[in-house]
C-alpha cells in the first residue's frame, strides 16, 4: 500500500526570474583576487579576518590565480610600471568579472602626484565599485561589497540565452 507522499517543506516550488536566480547565486559566491600593493593591504587583511569576516558575504576565499576568480580587488597604490601587469591580470580573469577599487590611491592616485603613480586604475581597467578612504574602514569595504552584490543581483546575465 502506498503511503501518501509527505510534503518536504512549506512550499514545493518557487517562481522567480532566471536573471534573479543566477544573480542570487553569483552574488554569494564571489571569489576575490587580491591585487594588493601597499598599505591598504593591512585594512584588507583586517576586513577579511574574523572580526569583520567577508565570509558572511560569500567573498571569503581569496584565489591567487586570476583564472579562478571573478572579483578583482585592487588594493593600494598602482604605479605606471605596474599598470601593464594589472591590465594583463584583469584580462586573464574569466567572465563574469567585477573590479573593486579599494582605497583612494586606486581611485585617483590619492595624495600622490608624481612621475610614478597611476592616477586612478579606471584609466586602465573598468571599475564597478569605488571604496574611498585612506585606507577605508572595514565597514566601508563591507558596504562596498554589498553594493556590488546589489549590482550583481539586479544585472542581466549574458549566461541566460535560449538554451537556458
Amino acid at each position: 500500500m502506498n503511503t501518501p507522499r509527505q510534503s518536504p517543506a512549506a512550499f514545493e516550488y518557487l517562481t522567480t526570474k532566471k536573471d534573479e536566480l543566477v544573480g542570487w547565486a553569483r552574488k554569494f559566491s564571489l571569489f576575490p583576487y587580491p591585487f594588493v600593493t601597499a598599505c591598504c593591504g593591512m585594512e584588507f587583511m583586517s576586513v577579511s579576518s574574523t572580526l569583520y569576516d567577508t565570509d558572511r558575504f560569500g567573498a571569503a576565499l581569496p584565489r591567487f590565480s586570476p583564472r579562478q576568480s571573478d572579483l578583482m580587488m585592487v588594493v593600494g597604490t598602482i604605479n605606471h610600471k605596474q599598470a601593464p601587469v594589472l591590465r594583463k591580470v584583469y584580462e586573464q580573469m574569466c567572465e563574469p568579472k567585477w573590479v573593486i577599487a579599494f582605497g583612494t590611491c586606486t581611485i585617483s592616485g590619492g595624495f600622490y602626484q608624481n612621475y610614478a603613480v597611476l592616477l586612478g586604475i579606471d584609466k586602465v581597467i573598468p571599475v564597478d565599485v569605488y571604496i574611498p578612504g585612506c585606507p577605508p574602514r572595514p565597514e566601508m569595504v563591507i558596504d562596498g561589497i554589498m553594493q556590488l552584490q546589489d549590482k550583481i543581483a539586479t544585472a542581466r546575465h549574458p549566461l541566460i540565452n535560449e538554451h537556458f
Binding site: 605606471h80 599598470a83 608624481n114 612621475y115
Partner: peptide, 9 residues
C-alpha cells in the same frame, strides 16, 4: 615637471 606622467598603457 612634477605632474609629468609617462603611462605605459
Amino acid at each position: 615637471p612634477k605632474q609629468r606622467e609617462q603611462p605605459q598603457v
